[in-house]
Measured scan of single mutants.
Amino acid sequence: MQRVNMIMAESPGLITICLLGYLLSAECTVFLDHENANKILNRPKRYNSGKLEEFVQGNLERECMEEKCSFEEAREVFENTERTTEFWKQYVDGDQCESNPCLNGGSCKDDINSYECWCPFGFEGKNCELDVTCNIKNGRCEQFCKNSADNKVVCSCTEGYRLAENQKSCEPAVPFPCGRVSVSQTSKLTRAETVFPDVDYVNSTEAETILDNITQSTQSFNDFTRVVGGEDAKPGQFPWQVVLNGKVDAFCGGSIVNEKWIVTAAHCVETGVKITVVAGEHNIEETEHTEQKRNVIRIIPHHNYNAAINKYNHDIALLELDEPLVLNSYVTPICIADKEYTNIFLKFGSGYVSGWGRVFHKGRSALVLQYLRVPLVDRATCLRSTKFTIYNNMFCAGFHEGGRDSCQGDSGGPHVTEVEGTSFLTGIISWGEECAMKGKYGIYTKVSRYVNWIKEKTKLT
């Protein structure tokens, strides 16, 4: 034993070699072989497995989906700052455009905790909710729209109204504003409101030439003092309507412009014939205590009207009353817009006519005020429907199939267009061939041609 100890002390290297040989010859039971080890760690190889990531292109799944990435790591994937920024906006807080917040056709661009709407022409605001041009839906104005110097929408209202708090709607500024039905039992019968379409306001006024200088022999019209197929109006439903009495009662109609003036057809009036105007009328054979009678003290036909040349060209006249009318729910003026808007309103496509005229061709006159909704007829169809001249200051309205029309005794009465609950004068009943005849239409004086003249002559002093 002493000898062994001496050998170990003198030859430590020998001992180490012996131990190493023993270990190498022993069977290893701690580690699995290569094949079995792979069965336990069965993990798919990654895209760049075996390579240094710093030297390969980034992978979106590896960089940002398996674990949260930084902007720089995302930049490695896209290799483009702009594309990385677009991805980053949604990656950080989701897609803010998912709810489609942009209105009126706006395009949404996502941002971090926010979004941006790219608005089409005519709109602005956070969600493109603000109209900035009158060309689109009248700028959301209830009545009139004008573009300011910086191309912003400025709404306005006709006389007797003021802008509401929203700067879009119009509200009454006087007790009985024009064009409004205020009798409670008839307010439910107000005709369907007309909503502004998209309009090209630059070209809204037709490029028409008034044929002022045409000389033409007097034409022989049949029954051209021209509501057939209409309905009984309720008291106060058309408070701007008046009836004219002269040699015979209810020979023509008219509309209240203001307390002192009536507008009617020029062919209705004769110099030297006494005319009485009755406002607030409903049943011409009954006294309903809503009527107001006034005498006409002055007749002003349009300066281009000449019955000797043509009885229905420039067929418009103004009547001055001896005493002002007292405005109330049964006696209310009709609204008159400017030339541009009167023309736009007419193009809405349908209007209402009213009167006490004959209820059928050569038949009896109506006792109760009649009204009828009539569609506008395109000019080409209008011209083809008659052998008589249709001037540019006239328009056609009615039904091709016949059966409904204005008729004798309705002449001078109103053709009105309702705009968001307020009625505007767009025409004056003038003439036609018979009444409600198939293929024939009622012919009306186009008020847009005469609004400046009306307003100039009827100013209240």
Rank of each mutant, 00 (worst) to 15 (best):
Thr133Lys: 15
Ala173Leu: 13
Asn283Ala: 09
Glu171Met: 10
Phe345Asn: 01
Thr381Asp: 14
Gln167Cys: 05
Asn80Ser: 11
Val4Ile: 13
Leu60Met: 10
Asn393Cys: 03
Asp378Trp: 03
Glu67Lys: 05
Asn80Glu: 08
Lys126Leu: 14
Gly122Tyr: 04
Asp212Gly: 09
Thr225Gln: 11
Phe121Gly: 13
Gln96Phe: 10
Glu434Leu: 14
Lys457Ile: 14
Met437Pro: 08
Glu66Met: 05
Gln90Trp: 06
Gly351Asp: 01
Ile7Lys: 15
Cys141Gln: 00
Pro172Trp: 03
Cys97Ile: 02
Tyr450Thr: 01
Ala173Asn: 09
Lys188Gly: 13
Gly427Ile: 00
Glu323Thr: 11
Phe221Leu: 13
Gln90Met: 10
Glu193Phe: 10
Ala279Leu: 01
Glu73Thr: 08
Leu460His: 09
Thr445Met: 14
Leu32Tyr: 15
Pro301Gln: 12
Trp88Met: 15
Gln216His: 11
Glu72Thr: 10
Asn343Lys: 04
Gly412Gln: 06
Ile443Ser: 03
Lys362Gly: 13
Lys274Thr: 03
His361Asp: 15
Phe144Met: 06
Gly254Lys: 00
Ser184Trp: 08
Ser70Met: 08
Glu433Leu: 05
Phe176Asn: 08
Lys146Ile: 13
Asp223Pro: 11
Asn313Trp: 08
Arg3Met: 11
Ser11His: 13
Gly272Glu: 02
Arg83Ala: 12
Gln90Asp: 15
Glu208Cys: 07
Val202Lys: 11
Ile275Lys: 00
Thr461Phe: 12
Asn127Arg: 09
Val359Tyr: 08
Asn304Glu: 11
Asn213Ser: 11
Ile454Gln: 00
Cys170Arg: 01
Ala37Met: 04
Val368Pro: 10
Glu259Ala: 10
Gly355Met: 04
Phe176Lys: 04
Thr422Asn: 03
Leu346Glu: 04
Val202Ile: 12
Asn203Ser: 07
Ile17Met: 13
His314Gly: 04
Lys347Pro: 01
Gly403Tyr: 13
Gly229Glu: 10
Cys145Ser: 03
Thr332Ile: 08
Ala192Asp: 13
Thr287Tyr: 10
Asn38Glu: 15
Val257Glu: 00
Cys170Glu: 01
Gly229Cys: 10
Arg298His: 06
Ser114Trp: 06
Ile299Phe: 09
Thr381Val: 14
Asp315Val: 00
Trp356Cys: 03
Gly50Ala: 13
Lys89Cys: 06
Glu129Gln: 10
Asn313Arg: 13
Val199Arg: 11
Glu124Gln: 12
Gly13Cys: 13
Thr386Asp: 05
Lys457Gly: 06
Phe78Cys: 04
Tyr91Thr: 04
Thr342Asn: 03
Lys152Arg: 13
His34Asp: 09
Tyr352Phe: 15
Leu321Cys: 02
Thr190Asn: 07
Asn36Ile: 08
Pro101Cys: 02
Tyr450Arg: 01
Leu376Tyr: 07
Val228Trp: 12
Cys134Met: 03
Leu23Thr: 03
Gln96Val: 09
Val248Thr: 09
Trp356Ser: 03
Leu189Thr: 14
Ser406Ala: 08
Thr84Lys: 12
Asn222Phe: 12
Asn135Val: 13
Asp405Phe: 14
Pro197Gln: 11
Glu285Gly: 07
His289Gly: 13
Cys335Lys: 00
Glu53Thr: 10
Asn5Glu: 07
Arg46Ser: 14
Thr215Leu: 06
Phe78Ser: 13
Arg226His: 12
Lys311Asp: 03
Glu288Tyr: 04
Cys157Ser: 00
Gly125Leu: 01
Tyr22Asn: 04
His282Met: 07
Gln96Leu: 12
Thr426Arg: 00
Cys141Gly: 00
Thr426Cys: 00
Thr29Lys: 09
Leu369Ile: 07
Ser423Gly: 11
